[in-house]
Amino acid sequence: MGGFSWNWQYAIACIPQLIEGLQLTIALTFLGSILAFVLGLVWMLLRLANVPILSPLAALFVEFVRGTPFLVQVYFLFYVTPGLGITFSAFMTGVIALALFNSAFIAEVYRAGIEGIHKGQWEASLTLGLPVRRVWTHIILPQALRIIIPMLGNYVIVMFKETAVLSTITVMELLAQAMDAGFLRFRFVEPLTMAAGFYFIISYASARGVRLLEARNAARA
């Protein structure tokens, strides 16, 4: 055991910087999630609509995104888009990368939610002669959302943890701030451990929340 000791004074001195990073992490997660929910819907609708060229292209895009590492996608977006004449800030690149990457998985969540509805629901709606719009808005979607929303919650937690990768493209989120504090004194124990603690507290509490939501939905179903 080298000369290790936990320095509380240093640990407390790091807190304001870590909180600053945490705020950015939460902002990234929030914006990334909303954009990912919308993009995921686009991919699913394209797949449903079966448009000649567009639908297979969307399917290929989704497969490609799912088969490649987030880190390299982030690099690609960060270093390549300026060459195409589009310049985003590191923060915006981070939001777009998070959203693009996760939307591919979220499209599957929507699909699973709708496919999970029993065939009898469709048959009953047809038998009752309900208008198609009513079937979707009053029968199918309310039931599908009960499955979809907790799953989306899980992906928000995944995104929250993935934001750490954005430290590699100079986004000063939680991990980047912790490393910054560490390099200042060349002492990483306190900032990295506390940053890990921040990640843990938020994602554990959120996961508990999602589990409660699932249990409540299961009880109502």
Binding site: V165, A195, S203, A207
Partner: peptide
């Protein structure tokens, strides 16, 4: 612990902090 924190911070912890423990 492993599911609640980012994989990258776990990696950095193993790389930068474990040496402190020898």
């Amino acid at each position: 612990t492993f599911r609640g924190t980012s994989a990258l911070i776990q990696l950095f912890w193993a790389f930068y902090v474990l040496p402190f423990f020898g």
